[in-house]
Amino acid sequence: MKGKVVSYLAAKKYGFIQGDDGESYFLHFSELLDKKDEGKLVKGSMVHFDPTPTPKGLAAKAISLPLE
């Protein structure tokens, strides 16, 4: 699924993505496929991810940034 980063707290390594389906997904650095892309996780960045339901809500897994 595609989505847009709505927040990312680099110090805490987490944030949120708004998916194309309108839902909010929890984003964690550990799910970023290329850790070098962390600096690109800023508000408004477009990402691809696997939407995954968890006991705490919806989460983004296997997060990647589109090729530039």
Rank of each mutant, 00 (worst) to 15 (best):
V5S: 00
K13V: 02
S7E: 08
A60D: 00
E68Y: 12
I63E: 01
T52Q: 13
Y8W: 07
V6T: 12
M46N: 09
L9N: 15
A62K: 14
F26G: 01
K40H: 09
K35E: 09
S30H: 08
K13Y: 04
K2M: 11
L33D: 04
K13G: 10
V5W: 02
L65C: 08
K56H: 11
V5N: 01
F49D: 01
K36T: 12
S45Y: 07
A10G: 08
K61C: 10
G22W: 03
T52I: 13
G19F: 02
V47F: 02
F16E: 04
G57K: 03
K43N: 08
T54D: 05
K35V: 08
S64V: 11
L58E: 03
G44E: 04
A62E: 06
K35G: 07
G19A: 05
K2H: 13
V42S: 09
A10V: 12
D50R: 13
S24W: 14
M46A: 11
K61W: 07
S7F: 15
K12Q: 09
H28T: 08
D20F: 11
L67Q: 13
A60L: 01
Y8T: 02
P55E: 10
K61S: 09
P53A: 12
E23R: 15
K36Y: 08
E38G: 06
I63C: 04
E38T: 05
D20A: 11
V6S: 10
E31P: 00
Q18F: 10
K36P: 04
G22N: 07
K61G: 06
Q18A: 11
I63F: 01
L67E: 13
Y25K: 00
H28G: 06
S24E: 09
S45W: 05
H48R: 12
E31Q: 12
D20G: 05
G57Y: 04
Q18E: 11
H48W: 15
S45L: 14
Y8E: 01
V42N: 08
K36N: 13
K40V: 05
G15S: 01
P66T: 14
D21N: 08
S7P: 00
K40L: 10
H28A: 12
H48N: 11
K56D: 07
L9M: 13
G15F: 03
L58K: 10
K2V: 11
E38H: 08
I63P: 02
K12W: 10
D21T: 04
L41G: 02
K4N: 07
D34A: 06
P53M: 15
F49S: 01
E23L: 15
H28P: 05
S45A: 15
G44S: 04
Y14S: 05
E68D: 13
